[in-house]
Design a protein around this nucleic acid. Sequence first.
DNA 1: GTCTATAACAGGATAGAC
DNA 2: GTCTATCCTGTTATAGAC
Lengths: 209, 209
Amino acid sequence: MKKIKTRDRILQTSLALFNSVGEPNVTTLLISDEMDISPGNLYYHFKSKGDIVEELFDDYERDMVDLLAVPEDADISLEQQGFFLHLLFEAVARYRFLYQDLVNVLSRYDQLQVRFKRIQKKKMIAFKTICESFRRQGIMAIEPEELESLCEQLTLTACYWSAFDTLSHLDDRESVDPGRGVYQMMHLILPYLEPGHREEARLMSRDYL
Amino acid sequence: MKKIKTRDRILQTSLALFNSVGEPNVTTLLISDEMDISPGNLYYHFKSKGDIVEELFDDYERDMVDLLAVPEDADISLEQQGFFLHLLFEAVARYRFLYQDLVNVLSRYDQLQVRFKRIQKKKMIAFKTICESFRRQGIMAIEPEELESLCEQLTLTACYWSAFDTLSHLDDRESVDPGRGVYQMMHLILPYLEPGHREEARLMSRDYL
DNA sequence: GTCTATAACAGGATAGAC
DNA sequence: GTCTATCCTGTTATAGAC
């Protein structure tokens, strides 16, 4: 029953508010208000709002780098891939404020831009590695040109699905179900799987609905 | 050689600035400065910045409604579909400021939210209509479940491709090439086409690169 | 570490002269 | 229609007491 340090509570509260009403709409005053501390106290722990955003981005980056370290020449199963996608969508959902106002946020904190792009590239490479593994195992049959286009599509979808989903289905930004995203990603891959494995993957995808 | 009315120049300049640096980063002062008029003059023509955004949105909505009026039971060719996609991406690129900071913009002008969602739905229906037409003509073979997922994917891609593309490839937001987007959309459809037509579509898609 | 008060500033918007 | 000057508000950030 340890009590959480104020500094950490600020990060926690900020993340929650950013995700629910959008980073640009969250003022330092709103954060301190929500926590029942004074604005001055907030500025004792962080020298600017940007610092809070950056520290949250650090966390995001760490999570992503860990997750995207896909082994180069392992045999990845369809099931493992489903699990991977699940974790990926969860991570994205945890920091969805970044994605919801991506261009805006990156334009105001431009040190983040390079780092974000680097992560995007890592994602794309991870997808490629997985597909290559599938191909080696005879699970997938795909031409190089299609592979390129598929991986771009997977990266785009991983990036924007949650924003798209909240936009079209509900009006509150509180809860996001990663399942639909995983389902959608699997359906992108499906057509390129060998007929036998395709059925297996289709059945698996339905579990995520 | 008629001279353009100030009111229209404001709309024009605003759109250009919104697209290039993002709507939230454009102040009314920046707009008037760019046009070499006074801020007061701007407010003579529009009672608020929001009004400018709304009027631009009106244009966008009109363009979209026109474009998305796809005839229910016509036989649509692959070529017509390519042309349709081309026009769609051009329209989206013209108003890309909306998409780049979608959640943010829609949260600040909430009258737009409903209208935007309505357009999104229209897009999805247009894609469905086209696919149904392909199926009737024996160009496409697809299960209902995949059709649903494909149309969602097409809608998502139409929405976010340009933002994604500018993010990953260049650093300036001035010019957007709609071609890559069309190519990518075609490659989403490709796997569901009948083998004969698939080759035709693949060749066609390359023209857009 | 936390508070209150307030400075400093930016952006949206208005008033009134020309 | 257009200008200059100015107000108002919200937001970031700091100073100094407790």
